[in-house]
């Protein structure tokens, strides 16, 4: 179970990317995190495994405090956190198998890492995962020969081979076409169910989030402004997340909303509505 408490990040430039985010994620939930670009989605997931160092608050994974861990402790903790990246972040010149096995690096000796000499169980597990993600015969292909969708599957296999307690996915679909994006989302939800781990997915496309996630977190200007089941995500809440509008009680914002063009459509145009943002408060960086 992942718990964050008042998690915050202020960059050295003074930009406050994340403020007081407290969430608890557990079970086999698929959690989608949505919000406009610059809202702090990426900062949030990177603060969890401390690829970005949080400035305030705490992160606990299965009760263990991750902030403040030393080098070794942090490396041990990272073994329990699988991560999938927008740009895949695979080692391009290595083979598919080497990339998947890199998920086990935290468990082998330096010499074994140098020789690519992994225990048979790891190799077994890697083969199973390659079958699962549909790359069964590609273990000796080099990653730079693969398509974007295939690379992302390798990325997912690398995250899952870690046998993680949680999987983080940072915009896993942003570099992919719509159809491949759906395949990847399906794969991630299957993994949550089969491996019994929670999956946190940063995502741009609200329709994908609604379709695949059990729960949605909405970030705006670094603050958590929505947290609820996907079914509860209304047009009002989208307005709050994407345009920083006041919640429905606010009389000023209310009459405008139906004319925003989002009502009744499944997919709100995220970028197209920026011009209507004047009535809300917008974060400075946006």
């Amino acid at each position: 179970m992942l718990e964050t408490e008042n998690l915050g990040k202020t960059y050295p430039t003074g930009d406050e990317a994340l403020r007081d985010v407290s969430v608890t994620i557990g079970g086999r939930e698929v959690v989608a995190m949505i919000g406009p670009s610059g809202a702090g989605k990426s900062t949030f997931v990177r603060c969890i495994n401390r690829l970005v160092e949080p400035t305030t608050g705490s992160v606990r994974l299965d009760g263990r405090e991750l902030t403040g861990l030393g080098e070794d402790g942090l490396r041990n903790a990272r073994r329990d956190i699988g991560m999938v990246f927008q740009e895949y972040n695979l080692v391009e010149r290595l083979t598919v198998m080497e990339n998947v096995l890199s998920g086990r690096l935290g468990y082998v000796s330096n010499w074994a890492a140098l020789r690519r000499n992994f225990p048979p169980e790891d190799i077994e597990r890697a083969y199973e995962l390659l079958d699962l993600v549909g790359l069964g015969d590609m273990e000796n292909k080099r990653v730079d020969e693969l398509s974007g969708g295939q690379r992302q599957r390798v990325g997912i296999a690398r995250a899952v081979v870690q046998e993680p307690k949680i999987v983080l996915a940072d915009e896993p679909t942003s570099s992919l076409d719509p159809e491949t994006s759906r395949d990847v989302m399906e794969l991630l939800t299957d993994i949550a169910a089969e491996r019994d781990v929670p999956v946190v997915i940063n995502i741009h496309e609200v329709d994908l989030a609604e379709q695949y996630a059990d729960r949605i977190l909405g970030l705006h200007g670094g603050e958590l402004v929505f947290d609820g089941p996907a079914a509860d995500l209304t047009d009002e809440s989208k307005g709050v997340i994407y345009r920083g509008e006041e919640p429905p009680e606010s009389p000023a914002a209310d009459p405008d909303r139906p004319s925003n063009g989002t009502a009744g459509e499944g997919t709100p145009e995220i970028t197209g509505n920026r011009s209507n943002a004047g009535n809300g408060r917008l974060p400075a960086e946006d």
Binding site: E128, D131, L132, R153, D183, E186, D190
Partner: peptide
Amino acid sequence: MATESPASPDSPDSLDA
């Protein structure tokens, strides 16, 4: 999708596997 036909150890090519 791949997940529709997961290759289990009991599948016909388990010897191969």
